[in-house]
Every structure is written in structure tokens, then in C-alpha cells.
Write a protein that binds this DNA or RNA. Structure first.
Length: 215
DNA sequence: TAGGCCATCTGGTCCT
DNA sequence: AGGACCAGATGGCCTA
């Protein structure tokens, strides 16, 4: 089977998600309210000031009205704020670690060559997406071949009719999204010397698929 | 040195 | 009130 005319996914990686942060070169978060460099920071400054948030005016009022909490000294307040922040940071760090663990687990089940080649996060996600799609197609084809060469009977058809691809559309083993081209870092991957193309990562046959094809 | 990738911090928002 | 989730900012490390 001719993997694909272009030999690759014919995808271009734009890395649009990785935008360099712009400006915001204020050395510190200050409470100067003039000309906020970025929305986030601007809001942050207000939050710093009142411990609530800019648009939380009504919220603030509500809590003020409550007025049940005894007044705390500035020192105690800032201490409490810092403690809360620290706890929140710990939770966030833990959350990201969990996320990374899940990502590592996903890497673990994806075929790479060499085995210890480490995909980046975005590559892992894209690879997984395309890999799943390709395996689905493989299942569909296997099912069709089991059912004979006639036009697929209804039971066979059911297996893989969700994405609208034609049953014999094996010539292009790529998910519609991949073909759209914006999801694959294949271009960048080709430039990565560590990642090479295994003969047949999926066992679909010699040269059926290249590793980079999934990306 | 520039650019990519990553970890961490941080404030905002939503939910329980 | 506190936790989860999210996105922006920032700095460090690595590679071409």
C-alpha cells in the first residue's frame, strides 16, 4: 500500500500554540494601575491590592457586608495569603505532575524508534491521535477482508462508519484532522535526529506506515 | 545567540 | 471557603 503520496503526512507544523510571551517586562507586579501590560497582569495587580480581583467588586461588597470575620492585622492577612498561595502552588504542581504522568503513560504505549526517543508533549498528543485513528482504520480493513471482498455488508460496515471515510480509502491512512495538516509536527520531527522511522510500527506490513507518519 | 520545550508561579473563574 | 482548572508570565535548560 502506498502510504501516502508525499511520503509524509503532508502536514505542516505551525506550533501556533507556542507563542512567545510579549512584552510584560515589568520587573515586578506592582500596584500601579496605569497602562497594564497584559490583562492577566493587570487583573493580578488589582488582586494583589485587594486580595479579591478587579471585577469582583460585587463579590467584595458581599464579603464586606458579611463583616463577620474579625479584623485581622495586615501582617496576619499577608501571612494567610502567602500560606494559601503556597498551598495552591503545591496543588498546582501536583496536578501538573499527574498530568505529566498520564502523558508519560501515553508515551509508553506509543511505538517510537528508537525506543527511548522521547516525544514532546504536543508530539505525544498528536501521535496518539493519529495512531488511534490508524489502528481504527486497520481494524476496519481487517474486518472487511474477513467479510469478503464484496461491498461491505451491514455488520461489517458498522465497525467504522463514524468518521465518514470510505472503506477502501486506505490509500490515505490519516485521520481527517491530520490531513488538515495543522496537527502534526512531522516537519519538525524530521529535523530531529533522534527520532527515526521504524520499519513497521504497527505490524501492518513492511513499510506500511512510518513512525513519522503518525505525527 | 535565538528558539523550543518545560516547570513553576500566579491570579482569575467556576464548582462543591 | 477551599479546591480544581485554566491561561499568562517567567526563567532555566538544551540544541542548532
Amino acid at each position: 500500500m502506498a502510504p501516502h503520496p508525499s511520503g509524509v503526512l503532508a502536514v505542516r507544523v505551525t506550533h501556533e500554540s507556542e507563542q512567545p510571551f510579549q512584552g510584560a517586562s515589568d520587573d515586578e507586579v506592582t500596584c500601579v494601575a496605569s497602562a497594564p501590560p497584559s490583562p492577566a497582569r493587570a487583573q493580578g495587580t488589582c488582586a494583589e491590592e485587594e486580595g479579591g480581583g478587579c471585577r469582583g467588586a460585587s463579590r467584595k461588597l458581599r464579603t464586606r457586608r458579611g463583616g463577620r470575620s474579625r479584623p485581622k492585622s495586615e501582617l496576619a492577612l499577608s501571612k494567610q495569603r502567602r500560606s494559601r498561595r503556597k498551598k495552591a502552588n503545591d496543588r498546582e504542581r501536583n496536578r501538573m505532575h499527574n498530568l505529566n504522568s498520564a502523558l508519560d503513560a501515553l508515551r509508553g504505549v506509543l511505538p517510537t524508534f528508537p525506543d527511548d526517543a522521547k516525544l514532546t508533549k504536543i508530539e505525544t498528543l498528536r501521535f496518539a491521535h493519529n495512531y488511534i485513528w490508524a489502528l481504527t482504520q486497520a481494524l476496519r480493513i481487517a474486518d472487511h477482508s474477513l467479510c469478503g471482498l464484496e461491498p461491505p455488508a451491514p455488520p461489517c460496515e458498522e465497525l467504522g462508519s463514524q468518521d465518514g471515510g470510505s472503506p477502501g480509502d486506505w490509500g490515505s491512512l490519516y485521520s481527517p484532522v491530520s490531513q488538515a495538516g495543522s496537527l502534526s509536527p512531522a516537519a519538525s520531527l524530521e529535523e530531529r535526529p533522534g527520532l527515526q522511522t521504524p520499519a513497521s510500527p504497527t505490524g501492518l506490513g513492511p513499510g506500511a506506515l512510518a513512525f513519522s507518519d503518525f505525527l
